[in-house]
């Protein structure tokens, strides 16, 4: 599958709006994990605006595709994409991490439409996604399930229990994406506890494995299409990403794993993102302005 020109342009331009809203919310909260939200953002946008069958106005539609954010600390990115998709008002975003807000510091599924599982203790969302995929198989395979895990998260033993179990059930309705941004809280993943060669490990576990640039919309959408076309095996996408992607002073920096930008840093980030966005000509009327997921 290839995205057409207007769609691609709309996705690329919206990517800046999403990053700005995301960082603004984290700054308003005064705490959070900006680096891992920016590395995940382009994949999340592609899921919700291109790939998944969703009905934001009917969030409990039984046949909706499911998304589980196993790396729960990146949830501001997911909140932002959900708000832009129409699940709830963008006005909620600045309430992130405030007392009484449904936008908890890590996902709580019973508080907010579009959040499919409560995560934040690493390693657990992968298994939950497998359960959803199994349920779908029992009911005639009416929806697909997507899970995003982190590379630091993959040091958890449960990830490997889960990796072992999905191929047993031939879950070709399951697609797991690794946000491979190569940095965790204490330093680089290679130094803290190396997980490479990750793709080889997953191949050895009997997965259909794809490796892509996690910031290239054509590659992301193409990988999801290939996952959908693959029968008999679950698909694992190793998405090579950049921690802090889009904000020059955050990119590749361990320090931005778990610290919110202050007022000046936010202003600098927003200025940089707006300037980059201005370099992309808006799409013609033919471009998509809202979610286009499947036949939803």
């Amino acid at each position: 599958m290839t995205l057409d020109g207007p769609t691609l342009t709309t996705l690329r331009r919206r990517a800046f709006d999403l990053r700005i809203d995301n960082l603004t919310a984290i700054a308003a909260a005064g705490s959070g994990h900006p680096g891992g939200t920016l590395s995940a953002m382009d994949i999340l946008q592609t899921l919700f605006f291109v790939e998944m069958r969703q009905r934001p106005a009917e969030p409990h539609w039984p046949e909706r595709d499911r998304f589980v954010l196993s790396k729960g600390h990146a949830v501001p990115a997911l909140y932002t994409v959900l708000a832009h998709s129409g699940y709830f008002s963008r006005d909620l975003l600045p309430t992130l991490r405030h007392l009484g807000s449904p936008l908890q510091g890590h996902p709580a599924d019973f508080l907010l439409p579009g959040i499919e599982a409560s995560t934040g203790s690493l390693g657990q969302g992968f298994s939950i996604g497998i359960g959803m995929a199994l349920a779908s198989k029992l009911d005639g395979d009416k929806f697909r399930t997507y899970v995003m895990i982190g590379d630091g998260e993959s040091q958890e033993g449960q990830i490997w229990e889960a990796a072992m179990s999905a191929p047993k059930y031939n879950l070709d309705n399951l697609c797991v994406i690794l946000d491979h941004n190569k940095i965790q809280l204490d330093g680089s993943v290679v130094e803290i506890m190396n997980i490479e060669p990750f793709a080889d490990k997953m191949r050895a576990f009997n997965w259909n494995v794809l490796t892509i640039d996690g910031h290239d919309y054509q590659q992301i959408a193409g990988a999801f299409a290939e996952a959908r076309a693959t029968k008999g095996k679950p698909t694992f996408i190793v998405a090579q990403t950049i921690k802090g992607k889009g904000v020059s002073f955050m990119e590749g920096k361990v320090a931005w794993h778990g610290v919110a930008p202050n007022k000046d840093q936010l202003a600098a980030a927003v200025a940089e993102l707006r300037a980059a966005q201005a370099l992309i000509e808006p799409a013609d009327q033919g471009g998509h302005s809202g979610p286009v997921g499947g036949n939803a």
């Binding site: 499919e116 298994s127 939950i128 199994l134 349920a135 229990e161």
Partner: peptide, 28 residues
């Protein structure tokens, strides 16, 4: 047999898979 899942000696994954089955409407 189609409604029984032996998850092997991996209880953490079993509990998570049960959670996912429940969230998708089953009674595990």
């Amino acid at each position: 047999p189609e409604r029984f899942f032996d998850m092997g000696i991996a209880e953490a994954n079993m509990l998570g898979v049960a959670a996912g089955l429940s969230l998708a409407g089953k009674t595990p």
